[in-house]
Nucleic acid binder design. Structure first.
Lengths: 224, 224, 224, 224
DNA sequence: GATGAATGAGGGTTCATTCAT
DNA sequence: AATGAATGAACCCTCATTCAT
């Protein structure tokens, strides 16, 4: 039994190694240029092993995407939970999440947007996560509005906010013509206008540890 | 000479056919699954002919993207020029452009966002056009603000507006959980808030012909 | 009738242009890299025209080879006929022929040696011309030997001489490590040894015009 | 380790199979008509495997040529080392080498002469080996001349001898109008004349085993 | 007679996948 | 569990040839 457990751990470790290698390869070579070869080279494991752990390449890509989204989600939770502030502050920091770190894997998401139309599972995952995020944001908007006795179309407000985040993120990745700080400033401005808050009260960077957080899907450190 | 002219016209027609077929193929099969085969099938022409008109597949993809962006740009000009209204109205309708028609090719752009990282020319074109758009929008924002004696950070405002557009567009394409009208309403709301205008004064749909406009890059009608 | 004649001349001129362009292309791009395209570019005529004058590419290559061999043969005759000397002198200069000019097309022959095994007609032509040369040389050897009252195996002598020529030519083309003058010196030495002649009596270069001679297959001047 | 060694041996065996199949294909179809298809058919292995063992087709062709030249070189060494005779005898048999066996691959060399102008590495190998051969021959000529107190231009003599060999070989391959024995007789005659030796003293065929010799590059037996 | 648009077979190469070891 | 040799389909591209103009 000890051995079986050990084996399972090893197996899981192997799976993770392959998943992380996949993300690295996607990041380095792009989507179409990521092959079984580049992935196995990145992992230091053999090509054949991939078939051992994953049904096929698509499966691996899907699982890798799930892994990446898991990390994003865990970071989101971490930021929201760690932040000591009221509804409004939590709302602000929760939408700032994409602009509070630079993992080096941001660009990769664009490839998955494209791949989503070839891999239905990826599209499903995307819509699921994005939908949950928007619902979550909409609830926070409702709470902050109720707190202030404000009336607003929370559905449209949530769409506005989440898509402003998405648009800022997309432009930041694609154009590299403005900074993450610009993004946070823009988001704070919009939120403060909506909720009649004073921007000065909310520092652009939350006072929490942004580098360490609990996640079952750690991303490798990239230094190039 | 008549003949030469005729021949050249024919040639141009063939080029266009191949370009449009490429866009159709990209739309239907996505980037990675669009091959010389799918394109030639879509066009009804032979595989070899593609090499006759384009240096290689990448060249064709780049030219096709240029063609598509040309159409988008021409539609943008059409909307802005046709609209009879002041600075503010023109600003509103110019950012509403992506939500004033549904060509069926919107999803294709996502594939090009991904392809941009493999084809530097595509990235260059993207950044060039997006940059020019944002500059254009920033000028309009300045003009509208000046008109009203308002002071604002036009750079951040332009980023906010263009990226709100991009984000709304991205979510609309990827999630299909809200409408183009939602998008226009959101944009109108943000603009009216910034410029203290009354939304009721600006109908969501401009009173112009949205289906016919001059362009050297017409898109085919899609019905599936 | 005048017109018909004119037309025919024009046709023949076109054929020649294409043939010469073929030789130029073979020289410049080598055998495998010479395509209908490179040939038509070299000739300044259209691709389609080649099919008008030649059955197919192989036909053109064969005719071009015939053309080249014709030129070589005509130069051979020119040298032999122009030289004012006895049997021995004529023999010497006739075998020196390959080393009395540098047309720039020598290397091309190597490609035809290879092509001969794919194009039976080329092999036939090669064997025919080489056979006639050797017979011719053998006759001259016989005559020179008879003149001097020498007895020798003229068959083996002819093989020796013609193949020494071929070998010198091949090495000169392939290795570029010795000169045409070396070749003529070697041939003179061998001949003088066989016929007890004094090399000093026979200058390495015959006193004739080596650049102008009658031929139906003129080669273009190469200057690169 | 046993397995690794076994695997490596297997790999090397596959490489050799592909190389030999390449030589066979070149022999049968010539240079231009030898394709990945003909080679894989000749080997009985799949097309894809070639890319597994060789960088590309050119690489395979170059390696195959190297292999063939290795065999030729090893046979040369074998003949020279096995022959029990003085400087002169060794010289005679060393130049007779091309006419002491018929592997069935002679014609193939003509294709490589042509290919050399497309594949610089092949030209380099050719010039290297031919250069070394001539130097070797020149040394033997010097030694034999010194032995007899003869004075001669050893450079020209070496060129004469090696190119007589090449020319005889070329004519033998291309024309098939004389025999290998003719060639050996011609070479013996020339050598004996130069060194005042009696041909009768040197049998045309050396008294050694011509079919078995050590080589890392064995050629297959051809029977068609 | 002359053109070059159009074809499609076949070229080399890549790559996900299988499978014997 | 792990390897990498082996496969073959599909990729992009080249090219000789055909044919409408």
């Amino acid at each position: 039994m000890r051995r079986a457990t050990k084996m399972r751990e090893t197996s899981e470790a192997r799976r993770s190694e392959l998943i992380v290698a996949t993300l690295k390869s996607l990041r380095k070579h792009g989507y179409i240029n990521s092959t079984i070869n580049t992935i196995s080279e990145e992992s230091g494991l053999s090509r054949g092993l991939i078939s051992h752990y994953f049904a096929n390449k698509d499966d691996l890509l899907i699982v890798a995407h799930k892994y990446y989204l898991q990390n994003v989600d865990d970071f989101f939770r971490h930021v929201v939970w760690s932040t000591k502030s009221g509804h409004f502050g939590k709302l602000f920091y929760s939408v700032s999440v994409p602009f509070l770190r630079d993992t080096g894997f941001e660009q990769m998401l664009v490839h998955y947007f494209s791949a989503a139309w070839m891999l239905p599972e990826v599209l499903r995952m995307h819509r699921d996560l994005w939908g949950r995020y928007r619902t979550n944001i909409q609830h926070r908007i409702s709470a902050a509005a109720r707190e202030r006795g404000l009336v607003m179309d929370t559905r449209l407000a949530a769409i506005t906010l989440t898509q402003l985040v998405d648009g800022l993120w997309l432009g930041w990745v694609m154009e590299e013509s403005y900074t993450q700080e610009d993004c946070r400033m823009i988001l704070r401005k919009w939120l403060c206008e909506q909720f009649h808050e004073d921007p000065e009260m909310y520092p652009l960077t939350p006072d929490i540890d942004l580098t360490h957080f609990e996640t079952a899907a750690p991303l490798p450190h990239i230094d190039d």
